[in-house]
Computed example of a mutant assay.
Amino acid sequence: MTEYTVSGMSCGGCETAVVEALSEVPGVEDATADHEAGIVTVSGDAGTEAVVAAIGDAGYEVIDA
Protein backbone atom coordinates (compact mmCIF):
# COMPACT_ATOMS: atom_id res chain seq x y z
CA MET A 1 0.00 0.00 0.00
CA THR A 2 1.35 3.41 -0.98
CA GLU A 3 0.08 6.83 0.08
CA TYR A 4 0.22 9.90 -2.13
CA THR A 5 -0.37 13.47 -0.99
CA VAL A 6 -2.64 15.09 -3.56
CA SER A 7 -3.69 18.72 -3.94
CA GLY A 8 -6.90 19.99 -5.45
CA MET A 9 -9.40 17.48 -4.08
CA SER A 10 -12.21 19.40 -2.39
CA CYS A 11 -15.23 17.07 -2.27
CA GLY A 12 -16.53 13.54 -2.57
CA GLY A 13 -16.82 13.96 -6.32
CA CYS A 14 -13.10 14.62 -6.46
CA GLU A 15 -12.47 11.43 -4.52
CA THR A 16 -14.64 9.49 -6.97
CA ALA A 17 -12.85 10.96 -9.99
CA VAL A 18 -9.44 9.97 -8.63
CA VAL A 19 -10.53 6.46 -7.65
CA GLU A 20 -12.17 5.90 -11.06
CA ALA A 21 -9.02 7.08 -12.86
CA LEU A 22 -6.87 4.77 -10.78
CA SER A 23 -9.17 1.82 -11.42
CA GLU A 24 -8.06 1.97 -15.07
CA VAL A 25 -4.35 1.67 -14.22
CA PRO A 26 -2.96 -1.84 -14.70
CA GLY A 27 -1.72 -3.20 -11.40
CA VAL A 28 -3.95 -1.11 -9.16
CA GLU A 29 -5.87 -3.55 -6.98
CA ASP A 30 -7.57 -0.98 -4.74
CA ALA A 31 -7.56 2.78 -4.35
CA THR A 32 -9.11 5.15 -1.84
CA ALA A 33 -9.10 8.92 -1.62
CA ASP A 34 -9.72 11.27 1.30
CA HIS A 35 -10.22 14.85 0.15
CA GLU A 36 -10.14 16.26 3.68
CA ALA A 37 -6.71 14.77 4.37
CA GLY A 38 -5.50 15.15 0.79
CA ILE A 39 -4.39 11.53 0.74
CA VAL A 40 -4.79 8.86 -1.93
CA THR A 41 -3.93 5.28 -0.97
CA VAL A 42 -3.17 2.71 -3.66
CA SER A 43 -2.71 -1.05 -3.27
CA GLY A 44 -1.20 -3.30 -5.92
CA ASP A 45 1.90 -3.36 -8.05
CA ALA A 46 1.26 -0.38 -10.33
CA GLY A 47 4.27 1.85 -10.86
CA THR A 48 4.43 5.26 -9.23
CA GLU A 49 4.70 6.99 -12.61
CA ALA A 50 1.46 5.40 -13.82
CA VAL A 51 -0.36 6.30 -10.61
CA VAL A 52 0.87 9.90 -10.67
CA ALA A 53 -0.10 10.20 -14.35
CA ALA A 54 -3.62 8.90 -13.71
CA ILE A 55 -4.14 11.31 -10.83
CA GLY A 56 -2.88 14.13 -13.05
CA ASP A 57 -5.19 13.09 -15.87
CA ALA A 58 -8.08 13.28 -13.40
CA GLY A 59 -7.14 16.93 -12.78
CA TYR A 60 -5.22 16.74 -9.52
CA GLU A 61 -1.58 17.10 -8.58
CA VAL A 62 0.53 14.66 -6.58
CA ILE A 63 2.72 16.74 -4.31
CA ASP A 64 4.36 13.86 -2.46
CA ALA A 65 4.77 10.35 -3.76
Rank of each mutant, 00 (worst) to 15 (best):
S23V: 08
A46F: 04
G44T: 01
I63F: 02
I55L: 08
T32D: 11
D34H: 05
M1E: 07
A33Q: 12
D57A: 12
E20L: 13
V42S: 03
G47Q: 00
E3D: 14
G59R: 14
D64V: 05
A17T: 12
D30K: 15
G56W: 05
M1N: 13
Y60F: 15
Y4M: 08
G59N: 10
T48E: 02
S7K: 15
Y4G: 09
M1Y: 08
A53W: 02
A53M: 03
S23L: 05
I55C: 04
V19G: 06
V51L: 00
A58S: 07
D64L: 04
G8R: 13
H35A: 01
E29R: 15
P26Y: 06
V51F: 00
A54S: 08
G8V: 13
P26W: 05
V51I: 03
T48P: 00
G13D: 10
G47Y: 00
L22S: 05
C14Q: 09
E61G: 10
E24L: 06
V6P: 13
T41G: 06
G59K: 10
A17L: 09
G8P: 10
G56D: 02
V28Y: 07
A58T: 09
V18S: 08
G27H: 14
G12R: 09
E29F: 12
T41F: 08
S23H: 07
G59Y: 12
I63A: 02
T16R: 15
S43V: 09
E29V: 15
T5C: 02
V52M: 00
V40A: 12
P26I: 06
G27V: 12
V18K: 11
I39P: 04
A33H: 13
T32S: 15
I63G: 02
G44C: 01
D34Y: 03
V52G: 00
G56I: 05
A54T: 07
T41P: 04
D30H: 15
D30L: 12
V6T: 14
T32V: 09
T32Q: 14
H35N: 03
V25S: 01
